[in-house]
Amino acid sequence: MGKIVLTVDDSASIRQMVAFTLKSAGYEVVEAVDGEDGLNKARGKQANLVLTDQNMPKMDGLNLIKTLRGLPQYRSIPILMLTTESSDAMKAAGKAAGATGWLVKPFDPQKLLEVVRKVIG
């Protein structure tokens, strides 16, 4: 069984495209519709990588990262931000919250795969 990637995004199309890209490369993909859902799914099934959006209802990406970093099982799991936000201030906030990397939308499937392979193999 491949490694598990949790994708958190309120946009169904982005979730689908992330799943489509990663599944074709042999990864197992779990989808969550917002930060809260992402947190529940992360607790329910240990993921090897979390890929989250920033602007989402209920709980945004930065808060999700902060909460996940508080959980022992997610202290050292790579968390990538995949968002339309591209300002340096937001990136700095992401880094401070414990994000492993920052990807600005729209993402190139090949580049996404390269980054995912780089962080979890």
Partner: peptide, 18 residues
Amino acid sequence: QGHPVKQESLNSGDIELF
């Protein structure tokens, strides 16, 4: 409040690993 989307085109965005 700022703007959530600053992209002007559909070129793929930057990638930065911390």
